[in-house]
Simulated assay, not measured.
Amino acid sequence: MSATVPSLTLVRRLRAPPARVFEAWSSAEGLAGWFGPHHTRVEAAEVDARAGGRFRVVLREDNGARHEVGGRYTEVTPGEGLAFTWAWHSAPERESRVTIRLRAVAEGTELTLTHDRFADADTAGRHRRGWTESLERLAALVEGHGA
């Protein structure tokens, strides 16, 4: 078994200011507008975006399947980023960590998402696809193209 714990990092440039991107991450209304891969919608979202606060999101797939994820915020810095634990309701013992960094750039915001502490490489791969599609939806929302 490898000593390397699987992780993923995605970097996106968004044509929106960091404050707008942060708001999309740090409020239930914001998450409801973009969170989740294609062919899903947010059925419920609860957000207490402060260090020690919790979040919970329920996703519904187009085929009716329901998924619930949640965690605890370990860092919340308005306009700059957040960090939180991440665990699916179906596997609470498999807790991982997500870190979001926002940096102002000439065209808007550079977002760096790091998701680490995965149980295995397969889980990291599935999350890479989910985050890639979610970030496409986030870009559409914050850039004003709809979700």
Rank of each mutant, 00 (worst) to 15 (best):
T4C: 04
S7N: 14
T9S: 13
L10P: 09
R12K: 14
L14G: 01
A19K: 07
R20D: 00
V21K: 02
F22I: 02
E23C: 07
A28C: 06
E29I: 04
E29W: 01
G30K: 01
L31T: 06
L31W: 08
L31V: 05
G33F: 09
W34P: 05
F35D: 02
F35N: 02
F35W: 14
P37C: 09
R41Y: 11
V42W: 07
V42R: 06
A44M: 08
E46W: 06
E46Q: 15
A49G: 01
R50S: 01
G53W: 05
R54I: 02
F55W: 15
R56K: 11
R56Q: 12
V57I: 13
V57F: 06
V58Y: 05
L59A: 09
R60W: 05
R60K: 11
N63E: 03
N63S: 08
N63G: 03
V69T: 14
V69P: 03
G70Y: 02
Y73H: 01
V76M: 00
T77C: 06
G79I: 05
E80K: 07
G81W: 05
A83C: 07
F84H: 11
T85P: 07
S90R: 13
A91D: 10
P92K: 04
E93V: 10
E95A: 12
V98C: 05
V98F: 03
V98S: 00
T99D: 07
L102N: 00
A106K: 08
A106D: 15
A106W: 05
E110V: 09
H115W: 00
H115T: 02
R117E: 09
R117P: 02
A119F: 12
D120L: 14
D122H: 15
D122E: 15
T123I: 09
A124R: 15
A124P: 07
G125Y: 12
R126D: 13
H127V: 00
R128M: 10
R129A: 14
W131I: 06
E133D: 09
S134L: 10
L135M: 00
E136R: 13
A139I: 12
L141E: 07
V142L: 08
V142Y: 04
